[in-house]
Amino acid sequence: MGYVQEARENHVKKKVEEALRSKMKQKALKECDHYTSKYAQCAAGRTISIVWQCRKQAKELNYCLHQYTNDAVLEAMKREYTLQENEKGSARV
């Protein structure tokens, strides 16, 4: 399957894509809650020193979040959405 054909199949409206991105981010925050807590504990009461004092926690959090918020995940969500919409459309006929 060519890139252009795949892009057409995964094309969704802008509002749908925004909703999928929001859903993706919510899932990522839920899955990475442990790392978020560790970072928040480290950052509590700090200002500028957060940058070097909490570097390890920030890297762990970013690594976790990236696993759930990347282009591959978004494309999979778009494919799933498109398949669901196609099933709904064929069920109506």
Score class of each variant (00 low, 15 high):
M1P: 01
V4F: 11
Q5P: 00
Q5F: 13
K13Q: 10
K14R: 14
K15Q: 12
K15W: 03
V16G: 00
V16Y: 00
E17W: 01
A19T: 10
L20R: 03
K23H: 11
M24F: 08
M24N: 05
K27N: 10
A28I: 03
A28D: 05
L29V: 07
L29W: 04
K30L: 09
K30D: 08
E31N: 06
Y35H: 13
S37H: 09
S37C: 03
Y39Q: 02
Y39D: 00
A40Q: 14
A40R: 13
Q41H: 12
Q41P: 00
C42W: 04
C42I: 07
C42R: 03
C42T: 08
R46D: 01
T47I: 05
I48S: 12
S49H: 06
S49W: 08
S49R: 13
V51H: 12
V51W: 08
Q53K: 13
Q53I: 12
C54P: 01
K56T: 10
A58V: 02
E60P: 01
Y63I: 06
C64F: 02
C64W: 01
L65W: 01
H66K: 13
T69I: 13
D71A: 14
A72S: 12
A72Q: 11
V73S: 03
E75P: 01
M77C: 00
R79K: 14
R79W: 08
R79Y: 05
E80W: 05
L83Q: 11
E85Q: 15
N86G: 03
K88R: 15
A91M: 09
R92L: 14
V93N: 08
V93Y: 07
